[in-house]
Nucleic acid binder design. Structure first.
Length: 828
RNA sequence: GCGAGAGUGGCGGAACUGGUAGACGCGCCAGAUUUAGGAUCUGGUGGCCUUCGUGCCGUGGGGGUUCGAGUCCCCCCUUUCGCACCA
């Protein structure tokens, strides 16, 4: 064979096959094919944000892992749809554009072109006829449509919410622009400001988002993160009536309590209603509206000062723990519904306005934070729960949060904590002062951004009609090109400066009205993109019914765990909403999700500041995409990531060179039985491990097999190497195509249905090695026929000198036999 | 602090339901080839030893269960990631 002399030239091979794939549409679907695919497999990966730096190895790692999965499914006969796109709206692009002084509308196409080049170069099986770019009006037209669906069904509402505000730059800042409480640009301390923003009512779906987690096949780390984020907690809401005028104990009387102004009742959420007898004071969030009702003239000044200070602290720093508790007394009192005592009401920033009711009953004896606060301000700390060996008078050196019986709790004394939770809530409930309640940590999703680089929110504000939806037929509301897109001191989006854009007639009454000038969150762009991919051929609807029915939900979604909560939660939420509105038949978008690990380099995290970032282009240039892909998949378990060591790439590189030589030098001859046995063992392992993403061990198995094929410098038989080419194809698709062709096949290997069939008979070993132990210590290994019974193995073992030495002068009490593995003599 | 995960040779990492620890690869050592280097090929490579023996020790540390523990149980240490006053 003349081929024998041909040496492996990765760049030539890769260029040839990338061109072949493009020219022959090997990886693309036509609309008809999408409608009629018999074995659809939707292989999705998280689309990248096209940065100016180009693809990061982290991206390549993720995409390669996903691509291996997709290519494997295709080799097994599935119709694999593997799209890619660009998540190009958002603050990253906007900030970068501001920094380099280039308009994002000019910048993004360049970045996208560069990403596209790189993505082709790594040999992903992407359908380039079905890409998505979130900044394309043809795409965000439907992002706006999604907004309208929520708006029309009452799931989008406008309410006031705090934002980070830099008083020096006079602009709204995103959380990531606040560094250590300071504006990242000018180092001025950041404040909060309240502005009206759009929210999606994801909290209405909290329970369903939680319950559905049981029915989907996701990485456990991811579902756990979601559960945590949803943060369901069971407890009670209790009512504490305000005490007007003078403080002091008054008899509790149900009638007079009810008669008192209902509005003058402070509700608290607690998971420990059993400790209500120990609630000796109350704490409100500084922003709580009841503060105005409560504050006395003497305290007004201090309270106002504290509120001001809390407001001036930015949203990020406000949440820092381990600082000592601060707070001030309002001068007002409310009544503990259980004891009837008037208790003082304080405000403190450790109580958050946006969780529960923004107010807590403070039980210093049994809550660590309340204990700390009470100590700081010299408040009483009574005990109402007694643990093992404690009684009502046992002093408290710290908050006791363990199990126990109630004490100092009137008629509930002696009751177990868990029983008391229900009993006390019911008792208070009889007077309308308490009910069991479930609370979630999940917050509504604020989708407003006072920015330029995003899709305009499709709403028109009319003085007579209020906020009105832009009619669907008027979509998209195109983002105008604004040269000066820098956020300014207005506190609203730069679009608010473009009069000719925002001045429009009201769609309902026709009077002059004003467009919403905020744009929407990038997570809204990425919250539904997977629905769009297969339907990009349709410009009259977001997703075509027949195709959507055939291809969704997504078969496998692979991505980073940094999106475990936000992106994945929002996608699930939007899918549920679209389902409820009748647009989709399913309510969970991703049947199977797997989180990949992170790549580090030489034991250290990669970062620009350390200057140890892997730049992929030169590596691909000198080693080829196949070697790079193979190495990335080999260096560690895909779901855990791995340590990229520069020298390590030599292993996979050598493997492909040896594979090349072995295949091109293969002869037409009968396969060696030992090699064939190893082949089938390899088929079994690789077929088992690729779909479960155990790529590193699958690659190791292929290397081991090639070592067997070449052992002692022997020439391979064609039947020994042909199946190996198919098994290598998911990892190194270009060389696989070339070798497949050299073996005389026509067309792409990925259309050739080449995956080898595992034959257990051929994989079976005739003799096996069995470890012989005496009292659990290895003393010999013997070779016996496979599945040999115990007496055969034992007889063989007793022929071993070393075994006899250890058995001599002892009594064999027991013999443990694990067929084909081990024989253990237990002697005494 | 809470939640999740991880600690195995010089390094990245293997090890099925508890059953021969260190597969595969890097690096290193020796040899072959080569003017030399690189590349390639062959063999070796956990530690210890006046005993070189299928000897002893060995999977972060300490206990335990078992014929047998990297794997199971208890306590502790280290570390990575996420959330961070969530009442």
């Amino acid at each position: 064979m003349a081929d024998k002399e041909r040496s492996y030239d990765p760049s030539a091979v890769e260029e040839k096959w990338q061109k072949y794939w493009d020219d022959n549409g090997v990886n693309s679907f036509t609309t008809d094919e999408l409608k009629s695919a018999e074995a659809p497999f939707y292989n999705l990966m998280m689309f990248p944000y096209p940065s100016a730096e180009g693809l990061h190895v982290g991206n390549i790692y993720a995409f390669t892992g996903a691509d291996v999965h997709g290519r494997y499914q295709r080799l097994r006969g599935k119709n694999v749809f593997e799209p890619i796109g660009f998540d190009a709206f958002g603050i990253h692009s906007e900030n970068f554009a501001l920094k380099v002084g280039v308009h994002p509308m000019d910048l993004i196409p360049k970045n996208v072109a560069n990403f596209t080049r790189q993505l082709r170069r790594i040999g992903g099986m992407f359908d380039w006829d079905h890409t998505v770019d979130t900044t394309d009006p043809a795409y965000y037209r439907w992002t706006q449509w999604v907004f309208l669906q929520l708006f029309k069904s009452g799931l989008a509402e406008r309410k006031e919410a705090p934002v980070n505000w830099c008083p020096s730059c006079m602009t709204v800042l995103a959380n990531e622009q606040v560094v250590g409480g300071l504006c990242e640009r000018c180092d001025t301390p950041v404040e909060q400001r309240k502005i009206a923003q759009w929210f999606f009512a994801i909290t209405k779906y909290a329970q369903r988002l939680l319950d559905n987690l049981d029915g989907i096949d996701w990485s456990e780390t991811t579902t756990k993160a979601q559960r945590n984020w949803i943060g369901r907690s069971e407890g009670a809401e209790l009512a504490f009536p305000l005490v007007p005028g003078e403080a002091g104990p008054e008899p509790v009387d149900a009638e007079s309590v009810r008669a008192r102004d209902e509005a003058h009742t402070i509700r608290v959420f607690t998971t420990r209603p059993d400790t209500v007898f120990g609630a000796t004071f109350m704490v409100l969030a500084p922003e709580h509206p009841a503060v105005d009702l409560l504050v006395t003239d003497e305290e007004r000044e201090a309270v106002e000062a504290y509120r001001k200070e809390a407001a001036a602290t930015d949203l990020v720093a406000r949440q820092k723990t381990d600082k000592t508790k601060t707070g001030v007394f309002t001068g007002g009192y409310c009544r503990n519904p259980a004891t009837g005592q008037a208790i003082p009401v304080w405000i403190a920033d450790y109580v958050l306005m946006d969780y529960g009711t923004g107010a807590i009953m403070a039980v210093p004896g049994h809550d660590e934070r309340d204990f700390e606060f009470a100590q700081e301000f010299g408040l009483a700390i009574p005990r109402v729960v007694a643990g093992e060996g404690e009684d009502a008078d046992t002093p408290l050196a710290e908050a006791y949060v363990g199990p126990g019986r109630l004490v100092n709790s009137g008629r509930f004394d002696g009751m177990e904590k868990d029983v008391a939770i229900r009993a006390i809530t019911e008792w208070l409930g009889e007077r309308g002062l308490g009910e069991l309640r479930v609370n979630f940590r999940l917050h509504d999703w604020c989708i407003s951004r006072q920015r330029y680089w995003g899709p305009p929110i499709p709403v028109i504000h009319c003085d007579s009609c209020g906020p009105v939806a832009v009619p669907e037929e008027d979509l998209p509301v195109v983002l105008p090109r604004v040269e000066d897109f820098k956020p300014d001191d207005s506190g609203v989006s730069p679009l608010a400066r473009v009069k000719e854009w925002y001045e429009v007639p009201c769609p309902e009454c026709g009077k002059p009205a004003r467009r919403e000038t905020d744009v929407s969150d990038t997570f809204l762009d990425s919250g539904w993109y997977f629905l769009r991919y297969p339907s990009t051929d349709f410009d009259d609807r977001p997703f075509e019914e027949e195709i959507t029915k055939r291809w969704l939900p997504v078969s496998t979604y692979i991505g980073g765990n940094e999106h475990a909560v936000l992106h994945l939660m929002y996608s699930r939420f939007l899918t549920m909403v679209l389902h409820d509105l009748g647009h989709l038949e399913f309510e969970e978008p991703f049947s199977r999700f797997r989180a990949h690990g992170l790549i580090i380099r030489n034991g250290a995290k990669m970062s620009k500041s350390r200057g140890n970032v892997i730049v992929p282009d030169p590596i691909i240039e000198s080693f080829g995409a196949d070697t790079f892909r193979l190495y990335l998949m080999f260096l560690g378990p895909f779901e855990e990531g791995g340590d990229y060591r520069d020298e390590g790439i030599e292993g996979p590189r050598g493997f492909l060179y040896r594979l090349w030589d072995a295949v091109l030098g293969a002869e037409e001859k009968a396969p060696d039985p030992d090699v064939e046995r190893k082949l089938h063992q390899t088929i079994e392992q690789v077929t088992d491990q690729i779909p479960t993403l155990q790529y590193n061990t699958a690659v190791a198995a292929l290397m081991e097999y090639l070592n067997t094929v070449r052992a002692g410098g022997r020439t391979a038989a064609r039947a020994e190497v042909e199946p190996m080419v198919a098994m290598v194809a998911p990892f190194a698709p270009h060389i696989a195509e070339e070798l497949w062709e050299s073996l005389g096949h026509q067309g792409s290997i990925f259309d050739g249905n080449p995956w080898p069939e595992f034959d257990p008979e051929k994989a079976r070993e005739s003799t096996v090695e069995v470890a012989v132990q005496v009292n659990g210590k290895l003393r010999a290994t013997i070779h016996v026929p496979a599945d040999a019974p115990q007496d055969v193995a034992e007889a063989a073992a007793r022929e071993q000198e070393n075994v006899l030495r250890y058995l001599e002068g002892t009594t064999v009490r027991k013999v443990i036999h694990v067929p084909n593995r081990l024989l253990n003599f237990v002697v005494g």
